[in-house]
Design a protein around this nucleic acid. Structure first.
Lengths: 331, 331
DNA sequence: GCACTTCCGGTCAAAAACTGGCCGGAAGCC
DNA sequence: GGCTTCCGGCCAGTTTTTGACCGGAAGTGC
């Protein structure tokens, strides 16, 4: 711990793992005198990371929120949790969140110690991106492409066109865009000599050619707009149902991700907006209450499909949807 | 940028935001001579963060995975994504992942600039913890309690006992335990003068009393075991179904979170283990294929409940589950 | 093979910083 | 009022840091 820089970093790490530290403990931990510790604390403050100090018995130092996020010092387990969690968040389909999540993921993956990779993959295999409405893109693909965009590295990959034709592409990647639950890559196609947008779920075996390229301005400048005009993004469904349960109860289960208006003491109207009909279906299934569809018509078809299949699966012996059957609550 | 420490940190940050940096650029960016840059790079290497350098045209520096995870330097957006994403991961119900995720979340929340909090909350409101089988714990509650455990701070909260009685508790928090999709707090109850485990979903208005306490050894030592004996944790269901679809197709949709064995070219056996029956139900709904339940019996009841309600919702006019109805694919 | 670009690390001397010890002071707790 | 804790000035000795200059090694393109 000879270095000042390394000590400052260690101090930051200590302040992150425990909220409260007496000065003497910190000094001992860092192997320096208390005077030097005070100077180190000052250094952190100058760097813009406010360290609050309290005096008297039980006094000590504490790292507080400042103007900027301090460097995060994570241990192995935390690093793994981060990698797995952000991989999921990247597929969340929430505008703004997913793109930043991919950036975080890219940063972590780039420096994740190799021995942790296996753990990340094992855990990732258990995760369900249930929230995602669209196809799930493997995290490795997502990060590799994000990295190529960020670092301006040429990329080669297999691509299946809408017509189902397998092609091989070499591109200068420009931006990743998440739109309507899908991921798109906007890139300059070196074979076609033009800008293209590629759906990530139709793309396979991306690999880095290793060669750099100077940034090329995208006509129009807005990558998201480019994707929007190049492809027809699936539109969102607005599902409205009348739930036979008190608004309170529905709110407790559905929480924030739907509008709930009470109709009377026993019923409420629930509005959900989603690019996929699977979401609202699952939500209503989870609810455990009877309900009526108000709109849209395609949601009726969707429910009928699920319901019919479920009752088929149960076996016709039980009698299909006999009104005499008690509504059993989920286990 | 007078300080060496701050410059080293900045260098680390630059190396994280772009994979490849020519030495001259870095030196200019940091406002030092190239010789000093080389020394800074050496410093990072000594700290255990391997910086790879390539020579010749198009050479430069690159941060590589090392033995330990380097401090992560995130910008505002990334910080927000991290906070939201880890809040979700904490509810994932995946053993090992959730506890580490809470630790990361606690670290971030403690130092998250106030102006970003609002954005985190707004985004959090849109997230669905669809993967979670149990009740969702607000992220603030989770982090506050995790922090109190970590920093040994007394905690006061409202608690609803299993009998439905509202009580007020003051405890010395020991550990957070995630078990069977639920969160528990193991703590020494200062009113009852004994160790207790509390379900976080029955707990309200946690607040920090501000007073510290010396760590107290938990009898037996293992907090998870304590919860397991104190409460009867819901057991996992093993759902086995015969899916009328090729193994390939099922694997593509279900992915990793279930065992798939082909039976013949058109059918396969799918095994899923979950603490909640909602999960497998949703998965099979999403699949869009016909299937038969092999076990367990309670899954049959569960499916019948969903299916019945769905067809009720559609309206009896359409005829309940008429076999003549075509299986409509999800929209 | 040759020119070119880039990183590498030795040496040196001046400048800057860091460090520990000491101390009077201020603030919070009991 | 007594205790504990953080605070920051001062000082002198030590260590580190810095930029400049250099010959060298390694990769790239022709």
């Amino acid at each position: 711990m000879a270095n000042t820089s390394s000590r400052t970093l260690t101090l930051l790490s200590l302040l992150q793992t425990h909220r409260h530290w007496p000065g003497a403990d910190l000094a001992a931990r860092l192997g320096v005198s208390e005077r030097t510790l005070r100077r180190d604390v000052d250094r952190l403050r100058e760097l813009g990371y406010p360290v609050h100090a309290s005096r008297g018995t039980d006094g000590g130092y504490r790292l507080e929120p400042g103007a900027v996020l301090p460097p995060l010092l994570l241990d192995d387990e935390e690093g793994v949790a981060l990698a797995v969690g952000m991989g999921d968040a990247a597929q969340s389909g929430i505008a703004g969140l997913d793109e930043a999540a991919v950036r975080v993921l890219t940063k972590v993956v780039q420096v994740l110690p190799p021995r942790l990779r296996a753990r990340v993959n094992a855990l990732r295999a258990m995760t369900v991106s249930a929230a995602s409405s669209g196809p799930v893109i493997p995290a490795e693909v997502l990060t590799m492409i994000a990295q190529a965009c960020r670092d301006q590295e040429r990329l080669r990959f297999h691509y299946t066109t809408r017509g189902g034709v397998q092609t091989e592409r070499e591109v200068e990647p420009h931006r990743l865009v998440a739109l309507g639950g899908r991921w798109y890559l906007v890139a300059y196609d070196l074979t076609r000599h033009d800008w293209r947008s590629f759906r990530l779920d139709r793309l396979a075996q991306p690999r880095d050619t290793g060669s750099h390229f100077p940034p090329r301005p995208l006509p129009g400048g807005d990558a998201a707009a480019f994707v929007r005009t190049a492809t027809q993004v699936p539109t969102a469904h607005t599902v409205v149902v009348l739930v036979h349960a008190p608004a309170e109860q529905v709110r407790r289960m559905v929480g924030q991700w739907g509008e709930i208006e009470p109709v009377d003491h026993h019923r409420c109207r629930l509005t959900m907006i989603s690019t996929s009909l699977d979401w609202p279906t699952q939500a209503l299934g989870n609810l455990g209450a009877e309900f009526e569809v108000l709109r849209p018509p395609e949601f009726v078809d969707h429910l009928r499909d699920w319901g019919t299949r479920f009752l088929h699966a149960v076996g016709r012996s039980a009698g299909p949807a006999s009104p005499a059957l008690p509504d059993m609550p989920p286990v």
